[in-house]
Structures are given as structure tokens and as C-alpha cells.
Amino acid sequence: MKTQEELTEIVRDHFSDMGEAATLYVQVYESSLESLVGGVIFEDGRHYTFVYENEDLVYE
């Protein structure tokens, strides 16, 4: 099982292909040891929320 830090790095790496991230945040109260819930805000103003669970990243 991966730590939240490892899950955060996986998510950060995925979003790095989409541009320069200004902020990546984790909603600790919705996350667990198995999943990471949060969002990313890019330098150009785009904002996505995400759920990373079971090696699957879903974002909108």
C-alpha cells in the first residue's frame, strides 16, 4: 500500500503533462489510505478536481 505522499506524487506526475501546476491540494477529510481526493490549479487558471483510487485517476 502506498503512502499519501506517494499517491500525491503519482497524481502530480500525471498532471505535469497538462502544464505548470500552481497548486495541488488534497482534501484530507475525504481521502484515505486507499484513495486521494483533491484538486489541481494550473498557472493558466484551469482547475480540476480528482479522485485517485486503485491506480485509477478520475478528474473533471
Rank of each mutant, 00 (worst) to 15 (best):
V28N: 08
E5P: 05
T3N: 06
Y29Q: 03
G19A: 05
S32Q: 08
E55K: 11
A22T: 10
Q27D: 13
S31W: 12
A21V: 15
L36H: 00
L24Q: 01
H14N: 03
T49M: 10
N54F: 11
I10K: 06
V28S: 11
V11M: 05
S32T: 09
I41F: 09
D17R: 15
I41P: 00
L36E: 00
F42L: 05
T8P: 03
E60V: 13
L7S: 01
Y25S: 03
F15N: 01
V28G: 07
V11T: 02
L7E: 02
M1G: 10
L7V: 04
V11W: 06
E30D: 14
S35V: 14
L24G: 02
E9H: 08
H47N: 03
S35F: 15
V11S: 04
I41N: 01
E43H: 09
S16M: 10
N54T: 04
F50A: 00
R12P: 03
S31D: 05
D56H: 15
T23M: 11
E6D: 06
E60F: 13
L36C: 08
Y59M: 09
R46H: 05
I10H: 04
G19R: 05
S16W: 10
N54A: 07
D44E: 01
S31H: 07
H47T: 04
D17T: 15
Y59E: 03
V58T: 10
D17V: 13
G38C: 13
T3W: 07
V26G: 01
E30V: 13
E5I: 08
S35H: 09
Y29E: 03
G45E: 02
A21Y: 12
T3K: 04
I10F: 05
E6A: 07
Y48V: 04
L57K: 02
I10Y: 04
Y52T: 01
G45L: 05
F42M: 06
T3D: 03
G39L: 14
S35E: 03
E20D: 10
F15M: 04
E20Q: 11
G45P: 01
Y25D: 03
S35A: 09
T23W: 14
E53R: 08
M18Q: 04
R12Q: 05
E55L: 10
T8G: 03
D44K: 01
I41H: 05
T23P: 06
L36T: 03
M1I: 10
G39P: 00
D56T: 15
Y29R: 00
I41Q: 02
T3H: 04
G45A: 02
D17W: 14
E20A: 12
Y59N: 03
V40N: 00
Y52C: 13
L7K: 03
I41S: 01
I41G: 00
T8N: 05
L33C: 12
V51C: 11
V11H: 01
T3S: 09
E43K: 13
V28Y: 13
L33M: 09
H14Q: 05
L24Y: 07
E60N: 07
D13N: 14
L57P: 04
Y52N: 00
T8V: 14
F50L: 01
A22N: 09
R46V: 05
L57F: 08
S32N: 09
S16N: 08
N54K: 07
F50I: 03
V37S: 08
T49A: 06
E53H: 09
T3P: 03
G38P: 00
G38V: 12
G39R: 11
S35N: 05
E60Q: 12
L57M: 06
L33Y: 09
V58A: 07
Y48T: 00
V26Q: 00
E43Y: 08
Y25V: 07
F15P: 02
Q27V: 15
G19K: 04
V51S: 06
M18D: 02
I41V: 06
E30F: 13
Y25W: 06
G39W: 15
E34G: 15
E53V: 12
D17Q: 14
T8E: 13
E20M: 12
V51L: 05
L7Q: 02
K2D: 04
G19Y: 08
E34V: 10
H47C: 13
D44Y: 10
E34F: 07
L24V: 12
E5S: 07
Q4M: 13
V37K: 12
G45S: 03
H47E: 06
G39A: 11
E60S: 09
M1R: 13
L33N: 12
D44S: 02
E55Q: 11
R12D: 01
D44F: 13
G45Y: 08
G45I: 07
Y29P: 01
T23S: 08
M1V: 11
Y25T: 06
M18H: 06
Y59V: 12
H47D: 02
D13C: 15
S32C: 12
G19N: 05
Y48I: 07
D44I: 12
G38R: 02
L33T: 14
G38I: 14
Y59G: 02
T49V: 11
M18N: 03
H47F: 08
V11Q: 02
L24D: 03
E55T: 06
E34C: 13
F50H: 00
L57V: 05
D13M: 15
H14L: 15
Y25Q: 04
S31I: 12
D44C: 10
G38L: 13
